[in-house]
């Protein structure tokens, strides 16, 4: 895994990055309105299917990116029933928070898998974000897979020295992770430093106005997609706040 972007020609790939960014943000916002698992489950699968049909990304590939989130999911499922009474309500909330998190992940990864880095920056900039910020954001995203494979290499190196990361009590394991984290941090700082030199040596920050080699323009298809996104968002708001659907009260007024 070197980068998120999957080279394909699908509907989502051809969409204007601004529409996809707005869609992702509104999607995340919408998910925050609802906490009923009966509602969130279908939504999660809907996103998966949309990614498959509209984005041409295999379901398995989408799911494999969610693996790192499973740690947080496990924590959530474990602690909610512990701190909440009755416990089964806690479990329901644990499930709903997990589903939200996984859906956030799916939406974000879908954006990254269907949008090239330069289009993503351009999208952010055209939405009014300063170029520096857009670049920083996409570089950060771009380096997640790189850091991931670097971490794998470092883990291999330390395992070759007899380190067994998956043995021992949690605290011992945490201490063992320093053997991986320190080389990882050092290597990351070096990469960041080299990257900054590379950017500056190509006159990054020279002038206030930047030009772009390729620009983006909203087509009729993009407007249509945006309309669908906004309509879906409004329907969700209506369902939640006028009809009161899809929400379970966490804090009961009586207690």
């Amino acid at each position: 895994m070197r980068e998120f972007y999957v080279r394909k020609s699908s509907f989502l790939h051809s969409l204007d990055p601004r529409v996809k960014i707005v869609g992702t943000l509104l999607g995340i916002l919408t998910l925050m309105f609802f906490n009923d698992p009966r509602f969130l489950f279908p939504v999660f699968f809907l996103i998966l299917i949309a990614g498959r049909i509209l984005g041409g990304i295999e379901v398995r590939r989408q799911l494999s990116l969610l693996k790192p989130l499973l740690v947080i999911v496990a924590f959530t499922l474990f602690f909610w029933p512990l701190i909440y009474s009755p416990w089964y309500m806690g479990l329901i909330f644990g499930v709903s928070f997990s589903l939200r998190l996984l859906s956030f992940g799916l939406l974000t990864f879908l954006l990254l898998m269907t949008t090239r880095q330069r289009e993503l920056i351009l999208g952010f900039v055209r939405l009014g974000l300063p170029y520096e910020l857009g670049l920083t954001l996409t570089i950060a995203l771009r380096y997640i897979p790189t850091l991931y494979s670097l971490a794998q290499t470092i883990m291999d190196a330390q395992r070759s020295r007899g380190l067994e990361l998956d043995r021992g009590k949690p605290l011992v394991r945490l201490k063992k992770m320093t053997a991986v984290l320190i080389p990882l941090i050092v290597a990351s700082l070096k990469t960041a430093h080299e990257l900054s030199i590379a950017l500056e040596s190509r006159a990054f920050g020279y002038g206030k106005r930047r030009t772009f080699l390729r620009d983006i323009e909203m087509s009729r298809k993009d407007y249509a997609a945006l309309a669908v996104i906004v309509a879906t968002f409004l329907i969700a708001v209506y369902l939640r706040y006028s009809l009161g659907l899809g929400h379970v009260a966490i804090y009961r007024a009586s207690s």
């Binding site: 470092i154 291999d156 190196a157 053997a179 080389p183």
Partner: peptide, 10 residues
């Protein structure tokens, strides 16, 4: 011994 020695120093 891995290619980049720094990958093991901590």
């Amino acid at each position: 011994v891995f290619q980049n020695p720094e990958h093991m120093f901590f």
